[in-house]
Design a protein around this nucleic acid. Structure first.
Length: 449
RNA sequence: GGCCCUAUCGUCUAAUGGUUAGGACAUCGCCCUCUCACGGCGGUAAUCCGGGUUCGACUCCCGGUAGGGUCACCA
């Protein structure tokens, strides 16, 4: 298919996959897929001094995790013969030449590098996002395209590989704009057709500088480990620099494929906003089935509680997990809260502070009386395992009559030992009636002593 | 510094000559409520500056200013 659209992403395995690269991958994927084209991954592994196998694996893992698996995968190092052939052709045609010059690291030694014979023309290319961009290539000089016949450099390798793979559209970060004229010069020396270019804006740090691995969290792996969902990542990244023609914000990957439009990509850089990512993550967490959510929440809780030595009870855990639905945006939040002891009281009686126990609406005496009455009401429930609604029905009329604050605060505090927590009925449903009554009795004795 | 790119609420953005400049996140307030969370309702908040062009500029042109990118025998 001569007019099939082919795009590519070309990361180098010198670090964990950066989410800027992930967004480039997403845009390339969307653009190719919406016309039934091909999305190609080329691992640029020619810098042997900086490559690491684990980074190579991480690129693949991360792309798969996002659902952006490539149709074909290449390693740039495999294309050395093609690079050499291109170099020979250029030298033969006198579009490049071997230059003997002092070595950079050791000027006393002479080396041979291969330089492009730069015609120094003005190059204008049409960027699909920014329009025509013109460079005067005379300023570039006869730049080096290979360290030797066996060591092609970036610009040469990119041009040859893109050509050989039949890449029709180069969609990449804005930081490559100034690389484009060099690559066009090489294309012209080789007699290759020019692909279409689209330079997408960069993802910026809050100070509007380029995100750096040093100062910011940029690896996709890290977001995954913190409990972000791939759907949220994809959705957020898509909207960072692109916008549909209406106000829709929630998109699945297939929906993005349909809605995506290169011409609606923003020109200016976009500041990464963790809060909005969290919001997206919450939306997708909310779409999980109850069973799936509870299973994953329980796993996070269990691990965190084990770390602080709190004995996990499976039945309580299973009743607690669904309650977390509206309280979690990202799994790491839940983990952090659990590790800080926020959920201990579901598994062990809390320590109580007698001065807080009565709350604002009741004296110590009144609170004790209310607790005692609540205990009595609970005693009418014959077994342990009731839904929160049933427990509420048992206690609510009394609370209405006596003042909700006066009854419910002491009750809730007696059960949780916390000034902030879910409502008492929910807690009782999770820990069981008999356990709840034991805590209430303990609270009463604290008040009357 | 040279070259290149960019410029709408705090942030992501909509509006491609005529809108009370719209939406989302964040934020604030109110409601719900024993507390927290969730939810509902509402508010604050923006066209970088200066010139043109035009009956009319967020929108087009020019000039400033600001920010960013890039200037390797790295990718």
């Amino acid at each position: 298919m001569a007019d099939e659209i082919r795009t590519r992403i070309a990361p180098s395995p010198t670090g964990y996959l950066h989410f800027g690269t992930a967004r480039s991958a997403l845009f390339n994927y969307l653009f190719a897929k919406q016309s039934g084209g091909m999305f190609i991954l080329r691992v640029e592994d020619t810098d042997t001094s900086r490559n690491r196998p684990e980074y190579d694996a991480d690129i693949l893992d991360s792309l798969n995790w996002l659902g952006l698996a490539a149709d074909r995968t290449f390693r740039q190092s495999e294309a050395l013969p093609a690079h050499q052939a291109a170099l020979r052709a250029m030298i033969e045609a006198d579009r490049a030449y071997v230059s003997k010059e002092p070595a950079k690291d050791d000027p006393s030694r002479t080396v041979e590098v291969i330089r492009l014979r730069n015609p120094g023309t003005k190059i204008t290319f049409t960027d699909l996002i920014r329009g025509d961009i013109t460079f005067d290539t005379g300023e570039l000089g006869d730049f080096v395209i290979a360290r030797s016949m066996n060591e092609p450099l970036y610009h040469l390798a990119v041009v040859v590989d893109d050509h050989d793979a039949g890449i029709t559209h180069v969609i990449r970060g804005e930081d490559h704009i100034s690389n484009t004229p060099r690559q066009i010069l090489i294309q012209e020396a080789l007699g290759y057709a020019r692909p279409q270019y689209a330079h997408i804006p960069l993802i910026l740090a809050p100070d509007r500088s380029k995100m750096s691995k040093r100062k910011h969290e940029t690896s996709l792996l890290q977001f995954r480990a913190r409990g972000y969902l791939p759907e949220a990542m994809v959705n957020y990244l898509a909207l960072l620099g692109w916008h549909p023609d209406d106000d829709q914000e929630l998109f699945t990957l297939p929906e993005l494929v349909c809605a995506f439009d290169l011409s609606r990509i923003q020109k200016g850089g976009a500041v990464f906003d963790p809060d909005k990512l969290r919001w997206f993550n919450k939306q997708y967490l909310g779409q999980k089935s109850d069973a799936e959510f509870a299973y994953e929440a329980a796993a996070v809780l269990k691990e965190a509680l084990a770390a602080r030595g709190v004995a996990w009870q499976q039945d309580t855990g299973e009743r607690l997990a669904p309650l977390l639905r509206e309280r979690v945006s990202v799994w790491e939040d839940l983990r952090a809260e659990a590790e800080a002891g926020e959920y201990d009281y579901f598994f062990a009686p809390p320590a109580l502070d007698a001065s807080i126990l009565p709350g604002k609406h009741a004296s110590a005496q009144e609170a004790a009386a209310h607790l005692s009455h609540a205990d009595q009401l609970l005693s009418s429930l014959s077994h342990d395992d009731y839904a929160a609604e049933v427990i509420k029905e048992a206690i609510w009329p009394y609370a209405e009559e006596q003042g909700r604050g006066a009854v419910l605060w002491p009750l809730r505090y007696a059960l949780s030992g916390r000034e902030r927590s879910p409502d008492p009925f929910t807690i009782i449903a999770a820990i069981g009636v008999s356990d709840a009554r034991a805590r209430i009795k303990a609270a009463i004795s604290l008040l009357v002593q």
